[in-house]
Structure formats: structure tokens, C-alpha cells
């Protein structure tokens, strides 16, 4: 697989919009053409070659090195190919992506996978608020695809999420699954207050019992749900460690809710977490 490597050499003045840097968009370009690409930062634009050291050959794999929080919209609109990101990219990573893979070695900002419609985002670090959330003015959040965060996540994970899978291997902030429409969110660490608030459908899997279960969720008992091995089977090809942790939910306490919004959603507490109440 051919690989193009772009290493951020100069700190941008103002926020640097990296949405144009997609493997498919650069594929077929010569390195000179790549260097001449204009990238917007703040109110100005610069040639890519003035900001990045360019190595390799454009193809299916694009590596972005040394990114900072000023680098926004990394992989926005990605449809195919692989983006390898190192550093700590800023907000809206993978915004509206519909295919391909983004692998981040570092932390990412707010709005990871905002309005996502497919593909895979793996962040080997922590992320900010509104992972898999909705775009400004939209009525639905993430509508397909998978986001795996090995660290912690901020508030409103999966806000108005419609479909797909978000796994937070660390802690998540308040309002996880806020007004969720459907889909699946897994939190293996501690989950902040108001989990599942306004949830219509969908599944929140919590490995740790929240300090207080929401008042609008009702317990239904503990079950061995047949769907859990299917979830683990899907995840195993992406993240074996996560797949093993899903085994913790082989027996889960099911809470129905949000009863103020139809009650067709669910919070599944891993049996160990449920026993600890």
C-alpha cells in the first residue's frame, strides 16, 4: 500500500482546516501538486508545503504527523482509505465521514465523528465533548459507523445518535447518550450523571454503575442477552481487548427508559456492576 506522510513543521497561525487532506483527494497527485495545495488557517491560506514536510507517495494511506489542537476537521468527509494521525488534533475529527478509517495516536478535541455516516474512528487517547454528536442545526447525530476511544470522553457522548457504535474504554462525562434515537454506546469506565437523558431507543452499556441511576429508568432484571455475543463478534476484528470486555455484559441488568420519552431505550449494567449496587 502506498503511503504519503505529512509532518506538521510550522505551527499554523489560527485554526488550520485539514478537511482537504483525504487519501482519495490526494491520490494521483504528484508530490509537487500536494505541496502546492492551499490550506486555510484563520483568515489566511498557505501552501501545504509551507506547513508540512512531505514524504512518500499519495495512495490509500495518508499519515498526518505532529498535529496540534489547532488542526481542525481532520478527516472530515472521509469516504475511503486510511488516515493515520499522530499528535493531538483539534475539533471535529472525522466530521461527516461515511467510510474509511481514522486512527489517532493521541488525544482529539470536541465533536469527533460529528454527523458521521460510516467508517471507523479509533482514538488511542481521550476525546472532548459530543463524540458522534450532531452538526449544528441537525436533528440527528451519528447515523452509522464505529468510534472507539481508548481513553476518556467528555460530555454528551452520542448526542441524538441515530445508529452505529461508540465505545469509550475510559470514563465518559455527563449526559452520555443524551436524547439518543438508536444505536449502541459502551462505557467501560465511570459514566457521568444523567446517562440516557431523553433517550428514545438505543442501548447504553455501562461497565460501572453510575452514582445514581436516572429516575426515569426502571429495572427489568438481570439477563443473558443473545445479542451480546453478536456485538462482541463484530468488535473482535476491530479491537480484541474491547471484545473481551464485552464479555462482562454476558449477564446484564436491564433498565428500560427514558420512560419520559417512550421507554424503548435501555441501559445495560454489566452483572458485576449491577451486583455492586
Amino acid at each position: 500500500m502506498t503511503r504519503l506522510e505529512l509532518t506538521l513543521a510550522a505551527a499554523p497561525v489560527g485554526a488550520l482546516d485539514l478537511a482537504p487532506l483525504l487519501p482519495a483527494a490526494l491520490d494521483g497527485m504528484t508530490l509537487d501538486q500536494v505541496r502546492r495545495l492551499r490550506l486555510r488557517h484563520g483568515t489566511r491560506s498557505s501552501a501545504l508545503g509551507d506547513l508540512f514536510a512531505v514524504n512518500g507517495e499519495p495512495g490509500e494511506l495518508l499519515a498526518l504527523r505532529g498535529l496540534t489542537s489547532g488542526c481542525l476537521r481532520v478527516g472530515a468527509g472521509l469516504t475511503s482509505g486510511t488516515l493515520e494521525v499522530s499528535g493531538n488534533p483539534g475539533d471535529e475529527l472525522g466530521r461527516e465521514m461515511s467510510g474509511g478509517t481514522i486512527l489517532v495516536r493521541g488525544n482529539a478535541g470536541d465533536g469527533v465523528g460529528l454527523g458521521m455516516r460510516g467508517g471507523l474512528i479509533r482514538v488511542q487517547g481521550s476525546v472532548g465533548d459530543r463524540v458522534g454528536g450532531m452538526l449544528p442545526g441537525a436533528t440527528r447525530g451519528m447515523n452509522e459507523g464505529t468510534i472507539i476511544v481508548t481513553g476518556d470522553a467528555g460530555e454528551r457522548v452520542g448526542e441524538r445518535m441515530r445508529r452505529g457504535l461508540i465505545a469509550i474504554c475510559g470514563d465518559s462525562g455527563a449526559y452520555t447518550g443524551d436524547r439518543m434515537l438508536a444505536g449502541t454506546i459502551i462505557v467501560l469506565g465511570a459514566c457521568g450523571p444523567h446517562a440516557g437523558a431523553g433517550m428514545r431507543r438505543g442501548t447504553l452499556l455501562l461497565a460501572e454503575r453510575p452514582a445514581q441511576m436516572p429516575a426515569t429508568f426502571n429495572p427489568s432484571g438481570t439477563f443473558a442477552l443473545t445479542i451480546m455475543p453478536l456485538l462482541a463478534q463484530y468488535v473482535v476484528d476491530i479491537d480484541r481487548r474491547l471484545a473481551r470486555r464485552i464479555a462482562d455484559f454476558s449477564r446484564a441488568e436491564r433498565w428500560c427508559g427514558d420512560m419520559a420519552h417512550g421507554g424503548k431505550g435501555e441501559i445495560l449494567l454489566a452483572a458485576a456492576a449491577a451486583a455492586g449496587r
Binding site: E144, T184, T203, T226, L230, L231
Partner: peptide, 22 residues
Amino acid sequence: QISKKFGGKRYWRVPVMDGEFV
């Protein structure tokens, strides 16, 4: 009933008296 879509395959979870029919 609850829909779950993993990796392009959609499954239905239908509540029944011994749990769920998937």
C-alpha cells in the same frame, strides 16, 4: 422489538417470555 446493526448485518431482538428471540 429492538434493532441492532453490527457490521452491515441487522438483527432484531424480539421480547419473548424467556428473554429475547434474536
